[in-house]
Structures are given as structure tokens and as C-alpha cells.
């Protein structure tokens, strides 16, 4: 059983929901990323999505675009990001880490080399925004072979036939994009999400995490109620942007943001 599967199973048994924060690796500086990952875990993260910065993040809004730019200013490479996970694993061998990003840095590194290094460092899953399953034939088996979960996106526009096909290619969880738009936009409609996620649940046994548009305890609880987990990105990245100068202050701010979401999610169980 993969680390992600284990965590998801344990949460389900406790009737709890997964809290999955996203930060961009190397933002605001490569030296603080591992520290921030531990902070996220202490504040209640079940799984961490660690963003691999890319020069052209087409699916992201301005908040994550700027995070990529801040990170790339320091020359953060995919190899370095994998190194950060390796460093993180020295103190934490429980919390699953999913690398999330775009295909080209992986292609440049070489898929086999990447998969080997990622698995070796203790990465648990890979979510490539611009890699639909149709194009993943050569890549996905390299992940499966090393017990790396391939996590794919589902969207409001995904027809049933594709939901089934995508779920078949996925392991760990599927990531449901809550609205038609880029990250950081505020247009989530919880009723629509509830309906769609319930429908997805009819088609796959995999846990469904929901991302895009979750910004506070209230939205986290509302979405947590209808899914297996919530993914929180832009609001955390924006907090990083506003507290770049002082790492201690930044860690406090991230905790203040994430912890109430944890409590709100856990209050659903009682």
C-alpha cells in the first residue's frame, strides 16, 4: 500500500477528511521550503502538494505565477525540488508528498531519471497539470513500477466516460478541479461541487480531493463535507508572498491559516 493510500484509508476509517496544502517549492527561497513543509504538517496537513515551479504555468492564476517567478529567480530546478523532499523525509516519513507541476521540467530531466530520483527521495505521487492520461502511456508505467501514485485531474467539463477512464489510470486519489478557471479565482459553487463529486464517487472507489477556490475554514468545511479531502493552494501562496521577509512570521501566518481549516474539517466528523 502506498503512503497516500494508507493515509487516505486511515482518514476514512476515522471519518475524517484530508487536508492537502499546496506550496510552490523554492518560494520565497529554496532554503525555507523544507521548514515550511514541516510547518504545514504541524498545522494539520495530511498530504503535501509541493509545486514544481515552471516558467509558463498556464493553468495557474497570478498568485501561483508569481510564486513560480520568485522561485525561479533562485534557479530552483526539479532536481533541487526532489532534494527538498529527501531533506523533508529525514524528519518525516509519514506525510505523503505529491509533486505537482507541468510536464516540461520532467521531460527535460528525463522521465526514467525523474521517476527514479523521485521515488528514491521519498516522493509519493506525481500530478502533472498538462498531462492527460491519453499522453501518459510512456510515463505512467515508470511511476507505477516505482510505487509512485499518478494523480490526474477531473474537471466540471469531464464527461462520464472520461471520468471512468481517468480514474482507471489514477492511484492515490483523483483531484477534482472545482470550477472552470485558473487557480486562485474565487468562484466555487459548493452545491455544484457536491453534485459532481457524488457522481464521481459512483464511478470510482478512489478518494476525491477537491481543489481550486478553497480559501478559509468555511469553504474548507463546506467542500470537505461533500468530498474526501480539500486542496488549498493560492491562499497559502499569497500568504507566503505577503510574509517573504520574515520566515518565523511566515510560519505563524501559514499556521494561522491552515489550523482553523483542520479544525473545521475535523468538526465534520463529530
Amino acid at each position: 500500500m502506498s503512503r497516500i493510500e494508507g493515509v487516505m484509508k486511515a482518514l476514512k476509517e476515522q471519518n475524517r477528511k484530508a487536508l492537502i496544502p499546496y506550496i510552490t517549492a523554492g518560494d520565497p527561497h529554496p532554503d525555507v521550503t523544507v521548514d515550511l513543509m514541516h510547518t504545514l504538517v504541524r498545522a494539520g496537513a495530511d498530504i503535501i502538494e509541493l509545486g514544481v515551479p515552471f516558467s509558463d504555468p498556464m493553468a495557474d492564476g497570478p498568485v501561483i505565477q508569481l510564486a513560480c517567478e520568485r522561485s525561479l529567480k533562485h534557479g530552483t530546478s526539479l532536481r533541487q525540488v526532489i532534494g527538498m523532499v529527501k531533506e523533508f523525509r529525514k524528519q518525516d516519513d509519514q506525510t505523503p508528498v505529491v509533486l505537482m507541476g507541468y510536464l516540461n521540467p520532467m521531460e527535460a530531466m528525463g522521465y526514467e531519471v525523474f521517476a527514479e530520483a523521485a521515488a528514491d527521495a521519498g516522493v509519493d505521487g506525481v500530478l502533472t497539470v498538462d498531462l492527460p492520461p491519453e499522453e501518459a502511456d510512456d510515463v505512467a508505467p515508470l511511476f507505477t513500477k516505482r510505487n509512485l501514485d499518478a494523480i490526474f485531474l477531473l474537471a466540471p467539463t469531464t464527461i462520464d466516460e472520461r471520468v471512468r477512464a481517468i480514474a482507471e489510470h489514477s492511484s492515490g486519489y483523483v483531484y477534482y478541479v472545482s470550477f472552470k478557471g485558473v487557480t486562485g479565482a474565487a468562484k466555487i459553487n459548493v452545491d455544484e461541487v457536491a453534485e459532481k463529486v457524488a457522481h464521481i464517487h459512483e464511478m470510482t472507489a478512489l478518494p476525491v480531493g477537491v481543489g481550486f477556490g478553497i480559501r478559509d475554514a468555511e469553504t474548507a468545511a463546506a467542500v470537505g463535507r461533500v468530498s474526501d479531502g480539500v486542496i488549498v493552494g493560492s491562499v497559502l501562496v499569497d500568504t507566503i508572498a505577503r510574509n517573504q521577509a520574515d520566515t518565523e512570521e511566515l510560519k505563524r501566518a501559514l499556521t494561522d491559516l491552515l489550523h482553523p481549516m483542520r479544525e473545521a474539517l475535523d468538526s465534520l466528523a463529530s
Binding site: L103, D130, P132, L154
Partner: peptide, 20 residues
């Protein structure tokens, strides 16, 4: 059928656009 010219082309976009 998948839009490939040899090793090139294809459809590398986020899921939201696939249906369109």
C-alpha cells in the same frame, strides 16, 4: 488520431479544456 506528427504534437492541456 491523437494529433501526433511522429513524436510531436498531441494534446497537453489541463483537463478542463479536454472536452472542448
Amino acid at each position: 488520431a491523437r494529433g501526433h506528427f511522429g513524436a510531436y504534437g498531441g494534446r497537453f492541456v489541463s483537463e478542463t479544456l479536454m472536452d472542448s
